[in-house]
């Protein structure tokens, strides 16, 4: 089980002349959930975007299951699911239509049972025929998770999936992450909520100023020790 699914090595990224990432290395193994923490501007979203293939690193490489992202063609994108802080959905289409569209984009065969299953999993089956523009923030976020897991990707990237979620949605997300992480999948999750990171993730990675400041197993940390580390990282 120790095989690393997401492997980031020596990643550098500049935007214009601003260095956002300065040599990031990390590995997420199969069945593992890693939480990315860090103050705003630490490079969490940039890292996520590079791993998702939406941005190109200036130096370094990302490999997913041993295949380099830089060299792979479009097919490798099948193995990535992304939840970002934007919903990445079409407002004027219904929940079902959104998922059906993305199923076609992923060349899924007989997608209907799968769409039904994920809609049940995020508890949106009842609202499947309503236009997404009528959904609440929590429902949008849940549908966005349904979109990310629709094609059953082994690599899941969740960029602040918990922002703006109510209690029920948040619990649902937690159980989904538990469930997904249990099968042989790798999850990279960024959040601002330290307690949630400890609760949801197997390991913690603290990003500061484009570098990894601290990395440890979640089991070795308590809420208080993590809070202190985070405060140190944010201060300097």
């Amino acid at each position: 089980m120790a095989e690393s699914l997401i492997s980031v090595s020596n990643l550098y990224k500049r935007y214009g002349s601003k260095n956002v990432l300065k040599g990031v290395n990390l590995d997420v193994a199969e069945g593992q959930v890693m939480a990315l923490l860090g103050p705003n501007g630490a490079g969490k979203t940039t890292l996520m975007r590079i791993v998702a293939g939406l941005a190109r690193p200036n130096r370094g490489d990302v490999t997913l299951g041993g295949v380099s992202l830089g060299k792979a063609g479009t097919e490798l994108r099948r193995y990535i699911g992304l939840v970002s802080h934007l919903p990445l959905l079409y407002d004027n289409l219904s929940g079902w239509e959104n998922l059906a569209f993305f199923a076609r984009m992923y060349d899924m065969q007989t997608p209907e049972p799968r769409i039904e299953a994920v809609l049940h999993a995020v508890d949106l089956w009842q609202r499947r025929r309503d236009a997404v523009r009528t959904y609440s923030r929590g429902m949008l976020q849940r549908l966005s998770i349904a979109r990310a897991i629709l094609h059953n990707p082994p690599v899941l990237l969740l960029d602040e999936p918990d922002t703006g979620l109510d209690q029920t949605s948040s619990q649902m997300l937690h159980s989904l992450i538990r469930q997904l992480g249990a099968s042989n999948r790798a999850i990279l999750l960024s959040t601002h909520n330290l307690d949630r990171a400890l609760e949801w993730a197997d390991s913690i990675c603290l990003l500061r100023d484009g570098k990894i400041a601290y990395q440890a197993s979640a089991a070795t940390l308590t809420g208080a020790s993590l809070r202190q580390l985070y405060a140190e990282a944010s201060a300097s």
């Binding site: 095989e3 699914l5 199969e30 997913l64 299951g65 041993g66 295949v67 792979a72 063609g73 097919e75 490798l76 099948r78 193995y79 992923y106 060349d107 899924m108 065969q109 007989t110 049972p113 799968r114 299953a117 999993a121 897991i149 629709l150 094609h151 059953n152 990707p153 082994p154 469930q179 997904l180 099968s183 042989n184 999948r185």
Partner: peptide, 27 residues
């Protein structure tokens, strides 16, 4: 995993990533 992540465009080859809910996704 290495079998799964083959990226050669095998025409019409069916790939089933590991399933969470024992429900393979055919692509």
């Amino acid at each position: 995993m290495s079998v799964l992540l083959q990226t050669e465009p095998n025409n019409n080859a069916l790939v089933a990533p590991p399933s969470l809910e024992n429900q393979p996704v055919q692509m």
